[in-house]
Design a binder for these strands. Structure first.
Lengths: 160, 160
DNA sequence: CTGGGTCTTCCAATGATGGGAAGGTCAAGC
DNA sequence: GCTTGACCTTCCCATCATTGGAAGACCCAG
């Protein structure tokens, strides 16, 4: 199975498969004489695992932890559960944060006429500055476990 | 007022002020003979506006639109309101998406014993792959209007 | 044997931000 | 005046996950 087939089978683009290899998330596969990468069903399985975890907002770093646990027959399920629940917390915190942004903005928008007149409280609200809030409550960032979802127009290594 | 003072006054780091200048979000300021950038209270006002909008999850691109409206005395408040409400929608969609991830993950975690035994449905859930879902429902990405919140340890150009 | 699709590697860009080096400048204290 | 330290300048690099593209090698079917 070459990289294109593995990509189609797993839903991970060929580009990303090579990238995951380069960062050590997946082992370097065997090569054909011509240098083509060769993947097994097991490798594809692992790629599916990775894609699924990415879809759930796990960072690559986090996924590396999960894979280590996955490959370890003696791991305690408690470890996995802990990581998963930590991720749940990260996600929920993030969702709440974004909702707070939306609420603030909706509030501003509500007091705006929305007609032809140029006076608009939204702009004034933006201009006058916040209670110096939002920037301090988070020592977490998107990168720490959250990932932009796929663009949608990308499903594996689609040809053409 | 030099860039450091402007940074402290606006809450935008000196680095970012220069970056905003480089991408044309703010005009190139006057310079002293020595080449130092000089800012006015008005410039700081604009920077506060920008910071506030960033805190509300607007992308820089979006902010450029807002600034154009802000600077335009004849703009209709409807335009501003439209942009704001679009942003609200983006944020809420994103929040819902993240919540869905969290829910899925919480669901997986719930069926995990969390004890010393190595069998863990979370890993199996990840490995068996999703209903090929999540990747298609979004032609939007984080970049399109959503931004990681500040790291927290960064407030303007703090010295030391 | 040729053409089109596939593979390889490498390089670059994205967006917003931070880090740091190397060098010039300013203001205060001695 | 001179030193010191805080500030400024530009420039390059890193992040994170992902995509794009170029240039060249390869493989299979016709």
């Amino acid at each position: 199975m070459n990289i294109g087939e593995a990509a189609r089978a797993s839903g991970v683009s060929a580009k990303m498969i090579r990238y995951y290899e380069s960062i050590g998330l997946i082992p370097r596969p065997a090569r054909t004489q011509a240098g083509y990468r060769v993947y097994s069903a097991n490798d594809v399985h692992r790629l599916v695992f990775i894609r699924r975890a990415r879809d759930l907002g796990f960072s690559v770093e986090r996924i590396a932890e999960l894979i280590a646990l996955w490959s370890d027959r003696d791991r305690a399920s408690a470890d996995v559960k802990r990581i998963a629940l930590e991720q749940v917390e990260i996600l929920e915190r993030k969702a709440r944060e974004i909702e707070a942004m939306a609420a603030t903005l909706r509030h501003l928008a509500k007091s705006c006429h929305g007609d032809d007149r140029p006076d608009c409280p939204i702009l004034e609200g933006l201009a006058s500055g916040p209670p110096t809030g939002t920037a301090d409550h988070g020592s977490h960032r998107f990168g720490a476990g959250l990932r932009p979802p796929k663009k949608g127009t990308m499903r594996a290594d689609r040809r053409a």
